[in-house]
Design a binder for these strands. Structure first.
Lengths: 331, 331
DNA sequence: CAGCCTGCCGTGAACGTTCACGGACGAACC
DNA sequence: GGTTCGTCCGTGAACGTTCACGGCAGGCTG
């Protein structure tokens, strides 16, 4: 059972008062070197460690903690965001707690964090209703998504503009008919996301044939490869492909090479994300780059604004970041 | 300045007592539906959110929080560990806060977490002295590393056994002279790690020539490629290579293909880590697989043991996990 | 009608730490 | 020798919440 050792236990054992123990531990001065040594010795012997909750409760400046919900730890896009967020947040004095909804119950993960954070940030899978219930009134900043309820803010990516530019550029480069490899998995279980925005924008700006050439696959390299083969079988005249994300694009490129299709001569392949991994393969992956630095910076701007108002903002805050076409070798 | 809204503010505004506000927020019963609604309404209007520190201070069961130090967010090995740890920790009721030392000051990152966690876990770059100072008495579990001081525990990987088996298997497969691509970056600034353990074990079991054929490179795909070319230039008779990690191995494989070297016919390449990414490239990467599940499970076993004793363990706890040879196509 | 139970609500205490203040003691000064 | 100062240490209060308990109605029971 072993009740935890408190500051009073140490004080009694060392024959001093609470305050003296505090002084010893926090290097406060107003204490002789001898008592300090003795107190620290007794502390170590009893295994005393200050209670972090009590300490933060009374402490001067309250630490600000953000809960980051990572979409998936197996997709570099999300881990790069996580890394960027962690670095930028630390610089601004934010603590970060992380969770991921990919394995197990996202509701449980969010509720667990709720007791420790002032704010949520990230990619959520939950529906609006579930999410609103899970966050327990704690404000949330949605990345690449939005929710109209009070207490929810967002940083969106203007992917529509990115796709429009990409389609125009592909056509200018001589592509006759463009196709798309979509994700078979919708992030949010919401009517807004079916079909995926990427697919909607693609269909809006597609060219070369009245019927949109779209095939969906799993969000992985293998899924991209399979989808590419299916696309070729179904629409053999396609000579340019927009792929849902870079991991799938790499898979598609490998599949094309295996089929003896020359890239970018016979086929231009364009991913989405702008992964650094895309620079390390051959040919390097051309992509609609989503600026992760700007994404997390914007999110932290909102976070700082909320913190300045003690997290009692009524109106929703929104930012938009623009994607950037990153021409490498594959398109 | 705006002092934060407390439970008393809500109580006064709603004309009830603290306890009634608590009852309303925590669904406790002993409260009429009408007052409950009124209290929640006033709460929302004032923007009241319970102080998490006060709540945790008095609450029945103390949440257990672990601080995870992620080696790097740009190497899938570490992010896979992070993902596995997050999932397993959540299952056992641990909260997880993360930081990374890769960008900026690792000391600052550790000290920041120190106020919020009961325990540290992860890959540290700091020297023993710096680390001991940074953790402020909070116990730490070192992954794939060790530190003999009190309060430090570890989960080690018996890489020596893995390398020994790998070398024997490579020789059995007909390799005449084996070489190695090492990392030019030492994780810990400590004499124990120079040269890297992987290199030490390689040299212990290398065969085919008295002089060990070793070239070091950056820990990335590109670094692996460059190192492979250097290795070929310097030791043209090498026909089997142990590579520091899988990312570098992928780079080496690509370089070999570019040089027209057949894999595994003319050259066998063996990585370390067991990344799932290694299954998605061609040829798939044979590797000494470090079991990330076992690693985090062992770490959490230690964590649970420490928690059971209120984190006042004097002796150091250690676990060892065995690597496993994963024969895929490249060796 | 006395007694009891039930529904609703309030008051003191507790959690473990730090802050603000004050007091004892010795040395140094005029 | 009284005053002042500096060093070292202790005591009450505060942080914001929940827990344990008790109280006050009103309705029901015997």
């Amino acid at each position: 059972m072993a009740r935890r050792v408190t500051i009073n236990d140490v004080a009694m054992a060392a024959g001093v008062s609470r305050q003296t123990v505090t002084r010893a531990h926090n290097d406060l001065g107003d204490i002789s070197e001898a008592t300090k040594r003795r107190v620290l010795e007794v502390s170590a012997q009893l295994g005393y460690r200050p209670n972090r909750f009590a300490r933060n409760l009374v402490g001067r400046q309250r630490p600000r903690a953000a809960g980051l919900l990572v979409g998936s730890f197996s997709n570099p896009y999300y881990t790069e965001i996580a890394g960027a967020f962690l670095a930028a947040a630390a610089e601004r004095g934010w603590q970060v707690m992380m969770a991921s909804g990919e394995s197990g119950d996202e509701t449980a993960a969010v509720e667990m964090l709720a007791g420790h954070v002032d704010l949520f940030v990230g990619h959520f899978r939950l529906s609006d209703d579930e999410l609103a219930a899970a966050v327990q009134g704690i404000p949330a900043i949605l990345l690449d998504d939005r929710c109209s309820r009070p207490g929810f803010h967002s940083v969106e990516i203007d992917l529509r503009a990115g796709v429009r530019q990409a389609m125009a550029a592909l056509e200018a480069k001589g592509v006759r008919r463009v196709g798309m490899i979509d994700s078979s998995y919708s992030l949010r279980a919401s009517p807004t996301y079916s079909p995926t925005p990427r697919r909607r924008f693609f269909e809006e700006f597609a060219f070369g044939a009245p019927e949109p050439a779209v095939v969906a696959g799993e969000e992985s390299m293998a899924g991209g490869g399979h989808a590419f083969r299916a696309l070729m079988a179904q629409y053999p005249d396609v000579d340019g492909v927009l792929v849902f994300n870079d991991m799938m694009a790499i898979g598609a490129i490998q599949a094309a090479q295996a089929l003896g299709i020359e890239i970018p001569g016979r086929m231009r392949i364009l991913g989405v994300d702008g992964l650094t991994l895309g620079e390390a393969v051959h040919p390097t992956v051309s992509t609609i780059s989503l600026d992760r630095e700007a994404l997390v910076t914007s999110a932290l701007d909102i976070a700082d604004t909320l913190a300045a108002g003690n997290f009692t903002h009524t109106e929703s805050l929104h930012r938009t970041v623009m994607p950037r076409l990153l021409w490498r070798e594959s398109a």
